[in-house]
Amino acid sequence: MRFSMATRPGFGRDHNPLRRRSDRIQAYSGLAAVVLVIVVLPVALFAGWRTWQHFSVISDQELATRQLVTATVAAGDPQTRIARNHLATVTWTYPDQVAHSGHLAVPGSTLPGDLVPVWVDEAGEMTTAPMTRLNVWLDAIGIGVGLMLAALAVGGLGYQGTRSVLNRHRARELDEEWRRLNGFSMNA
């Protein structure tokens, strides 16, 4: 079965007097949007995979160098109450049996002498919690999905913008043609 140019609206160089140049431009604009999304798909997959690789290495390093220790709340500062938390001075010993201290946001009900978990680095200094595998996966998926959404947005907005400009152009041409048919001149 052969397909004629008439079955593919907007594409080809047929001699249909009803198919305008603007129709072809709109069709090619839609095709360009689809091609953009198709081209970006492997790029998004690759970027997500590389993000996963990169953050997996960081996560492994952080998990190997950070420890969760138990710290004792030495004193709380109710003046620093933030929502339901407040800053408290906490103390802990790790790994060289040297006492360390720092400030940590603890629940408002925490009293001096209570035990709280604290992440520390190899030197025993307070640090952030290590990146988890869930964080690694969420970042990788976020990069890939974000790139795809950006491609969809660019393609869709490009197509809609082109279509809008062409519709205004077609409306202007139609008005001009009606005026000519009714004996009015646009330049008079």
Score class of each variant (00 low, 15 high):
residue 181 L to H: 03
residue 29 S to Q: 08
residue 186 M to Q: 08
residue 120 V to T: 07
residue 154 V to G: 01
residue 80 T to H: 02
residue 172 R to P: 07
residue 105 A to T: 01
residue 144 G to Y: 01
residue 181 L to D: 01
residue 79 Q to T: 09
residue 70 T to Y: 07
residue 76 G to C: 15
residue 75 A to S: 04
residue 166 L to D: 07
residue 18 L to I: 09
residue 60 D to I: 03
residue 177 E to W: 05
residue 113 G to Y: 03
residue 66 R to V: 06
residue 96 D to Q: 14
residue 142 G to S: 14
residue 136 V to P: 00
residue 50 R to T: 08
residue 145 V to G: 03
residue 87 L to P: 00
residue 148 M to I: 11
residue 47 A to I: 09
residue 14 D to M: 06
residue 6 A to F: 03
residue 170 R to W: 12
residue 22 S to Y: 03
residue 78 P to L: 13
residue 151 A to N: 04
residue 6 A to L: 02
residue 9 P to H: 03
residue 7 T to R: 01
residue 43 V to K: 02
residue 114 D to V: 01
residue 33 A to V: 04
residue 93 T to R: 10
residue 49 W to T: 06
residue 51 T to I: 09
residue 106 V to K: 05
residue 130 P to N: 09
residue 159 Y to I: 08
residue 149 L to M: 03
residue 127 T to D: 09
residue 119 W to L: 09
residue 1 M to A: 09
residue 147 L to T: 07
residue 47 A to H: 08
residue 21 R to Y: 12
residue 144 G to L: 04
residue 126 M to E: 11
residue 177 E to K: 03
residue 47 A to N: 10
residue 110 T to H: 15
residue 9 P to V: 12
residue 38 I to V: 15
residue 126 M to A: 10
residue 167 N to W: 12
residue 101 S to W: 03
residue 67 Q to R: 15
residue 1 M to K: 01
residue 136 V to N: 05
residue 74 A to L: 12
residue 167 N to G: 00
residue 165 V to K: 00
residue 72 T to P: 06
residue 130 P to M: 12
residue 132 T to H: 06
residue 89 T to N: 08
residue 117 P to Q: 01
residue 90 V to K: 02
residue 172 R to Q: 13
residue 51 T to N: 09
residue 106 V to T: 04
residue 53 Q to P: 11
residue 172 R to N: 10
residue 79 Q to V: 06
residue 31 L to E: 07
residue 5 M to A: 00
residue 139 D to E: 12
residue 121 D to G: 06
residue 55 F to V: 08
residue 174 L to A: 09
residue 112 P to T: 15
residue 31 L to T: 14
residue 6 A to G: 11
residue 7 T to W: 04
residue 27 A to N: 05
residue 128 T to W: 01
residue 125 E to T: 05
residue 23 D to I: 05
residue 30 G to Q: 01
residue 163 R to V: 03
residue 106 V to E: 12
residue 64 A to M: 07
residue 50 R to I: 11
residue 158 G to D: 02
residue 124 G to F: 13
residue 104 L to E: 12
residue 33 A to G: 06
residue 53 Q to V: 10
residue 156 G to D: 05
residue 9 P to Y: 08
residue 188 A to C: 05
residue 158 G to P: 04
residue 132 T to R: 14
residue 49 W to G: 05
residue 151 A to E: 00
residue 36 L to I: 12
residue 144 G to P: 07
residue 32 A to Q: 04
residue 94 Y to D: 13
residue 76 G to I: 15
residue 112 P to E: 15
residue 81 R to C: 04
residue 187 N to A: 09
residue 161 G to L: 00
residue 98 V to Y: 14
residue 10 G to E: 02
residue 148 M to V: 01
residue 187 N to M: 14
residue 125 E to R: 02
residue 122 E to G: 11
residue 88 A to E: 02
residue 108 G to Q: 14
residue 21 R to S: 07
residue 77 D to C: 14
residue 124 G to V: 15
residue 102 G to K: 00
residue 129 A to S: 10
residue 84 R to C: 02
residue 52 W to Q: 14
residue 65 T to L: 10
residue 58 I to C: 06
residue 85 N to C: 01
residue 111 L to W: 06
residue 39 V to W: 08
residue 109 S to D: 14
residue 51 T to S: 14
residue 67 Q to I: 14
